[in-house]
């Protein structure tokens, strides 16, 4: 884990990513829902291979940030630079092609399709043949389908799920469903992956395994990962940079150590009165 260094824009990114264009550069992002500003003045820069955490109490606006980053909601204010390119006005699927993939807090798999098909749908844009070529079953169809099949099994084997390829996604155990969502997101070849509470509902040993896997993904694919999580062991264990959100505003940014000892953070989580101990 590299220490964080200041880059010219005053943002913090891991030292090894210095000199490279940050994958995500968010400036003054904000959105209003009928007069209520759900997220306001959100500034964050994420390095090329950074594992970043976004934490905060329930209702702080964390998932709203993810929805803004993928243009599910269109921001009222501010700008997002994904790999140096402005994402304003783009559709969600276009942003995916530009390199942003995500998982969902409430799992959104294609439940009635097989595990393999779920991954192949993630590979949709990497599989290249036209409708006519598919209908006429030209050689390019067979070649590309074979490639997609092999790639899908390869990605599934990351999580030891290759033997489940023929299962219906909906029949997988809970933990495996979460893992499949990550595999599907990875299949779209993202530059940054957003994980919305990846450890929700997992037991401690599964969470430990997930931490290993998130690191493995970052090291194999050299991508950035941003995650929302309530499990402080996971967040403090793997995140290099952490942002704390409360009432739609960032109240603290920094390394795990800095966040742990930040009085504002402790206050947001545990309330104002003295005497309470931070559990993290």
């Amino acid at each position: 884990m590299d220490k964080l260094v200041k880059v010219p824009s005053n943002a913090l990114i891991p030292e090894r990513d210095l000199g490279k264009l940050p994958i995500l550069d968010i400036r003054h992002l904000g959105i209003d829902f009928g007069g209520l500003s759900a997220v306001d003045d959100f500034n964050l820069t994420i390095g090329r291979t950074e594992i970043a955490g976004l934490i905060g109490p329930n209702g702080a606006g964390k998932t709203t940030v993810f929805n803004l980053l993928t243009n599910v909601y269109h921001p009222t204010r501010g700008s997002i630079l994904l790999d140096g390119k402005d994402t304003a006005g783009k559709k969600t699927y276009q942003l995916n092609k530009m390199g942003i993939a995500r998982t969902f807090q409430n799992i959104r798999l294609f439940k009635n399709l097989t595990v393999e098909d779920n991954v192949k749908i993630g590979l949709h844009n990497a599989t290249d043949y036209s409708m006519a070529q598919a209908i006429l079953r030209l050689p390019v169809y067979w070649k590309e389908e074979k490639k997609a099949h092999e790639k899908a099994l390869e990605l599934l084997s990351l999580f030891d799920m290759q033997d489940m390829a023929d299962w219906k996604a909906g029949s997988l155990p809970y933990g495996a469903q979460r893992r499949l969502e990550i595999v599907r997101a990875l299949a779209t070849k993202p530059g940054i992956m957003l994980l919305d509470e990846p450890a929700a509902g997992m037991n401690p040993s599964e969470t430990a395994e997930l931490m290993e896997n998130i690191r493995k993904i970052r090291d194999t694919f050299h991508i950035a990962i941003m995650l929302i999580e309530h499990d402080m062991n996971l967040v403090m264990g793997i995140c290099e940079g952490i942002a704390v959100l409360n009432y739609g505003r960032i109240i603290a940014k920094g390394s795990p150590e800095e966040i742990k000892s930040n009085p504002m953070v402790i206050e947001a989580y545990l309330g104002k009165k003295g005497g309470a101990k931070a559990h993290a």
Partner: peptide, 14 residues
């Protein structure tokens, strides 16, 4: 098929 299963997930898959 993915649109039938889950539109939001389909769109986020590109």
């Amino acid at each position: 098929l993915s649109i039938r299963e889950n539109e939001i997930a389909a769109e986020s898959c590109g």
